[in-house]
């Protein structure tokens, strides 16, 4: 490979290979939104702070505004659309039962207000639960684990309650705590 301003990348997004010749400076979040055409991943601060653009890269949460598409060449990306594709946009008959457990926990615990941070929150919680050993996640660990995701509505109480509910369903939460209960 020689240095070049454009890079041929192939990234698996939600199980589907997306190949394109892109500018080297293209960010992963722009690849997801504008090349793969998936607008569920939001751009918030664009400075690695807010976490709205969180996706899973090879299973780990990352802020896709701070990863080059070229760095993700060959990787598998999971976005909010890929968590439970059969649930569609969540509005259909019986869609709630088809949601991913983390989505369903946010749905049932009203873990959102305006919803802008929600895709990033859901992906961050999904990563947090996947990485936790049995009994590792209590409320404090969830609050710390979500320090990279900001909710400008300040709706943290129900977000933490949602994450706790999802963790409990996954069999990793330990402590019963005050959040939303």
């Amino acid at each position: 490979m020689s240095a070049s301003k454009s890079v041929r990348v192939e990234i698996k997004v939600n199980g589907k290979a997306v190949a394109a010749e892109v500018e080297a400076r293209l960010l992963l979040v722009q690849f997801i939104r504008d090349v793969a055409g998936l607008k569920g991943t939001n751009i918030g601060c664009d400075t690695t702070s807010c976490g709205a653009c969180t996706v899973l890269l090879n299973g780990q949460s990352v802020k896709s505004c701070t990863v080059l598409a070229a760095q993700a060449d060959g990787a598998s990306i999971l976005t909010i659309e890929g968590l439970a594709p059969e649930a569609g946009d969540g509005s259909g008959e019986g869609a709630a039962s088809l949601m991913h457990p983390v989505q369903r926990a946010f749905h049932e615990n009203h873990g959102l207000q305006c919803g802008y941070c929600t895709p990033g929150m859901v992906m961050a919680v999904t990563s947090l639960i996947a990485e936790a050993g049995p009994g590792e996640l209590d409320e404090a660990a969830i609050r710390e684990g979500l320090e990279g995701n900001l909710c400008r509505c300040t709706g943290y109480h129900n977000i933490v309650a949602s994450a706790l509910a999802a963790a409990r369903e996954a069999g990793v939460a330990v402590a019963r705590t005050g959040a939303g209960e």
Partner: peptide, 21 residues
């Protein structure tokens, strides 16, 4: 925000990275 344009090259080994430097 988008970085200014640059050329990208991926090094597969330390020796290759040092040669590219």
């Amino acid at each position: 925000m988008i970085p200014a344009s640059f050329e990208y090259v991926r090094a597969e080994s330390l020796d290759e990275a040092l040669a590219l430097l």
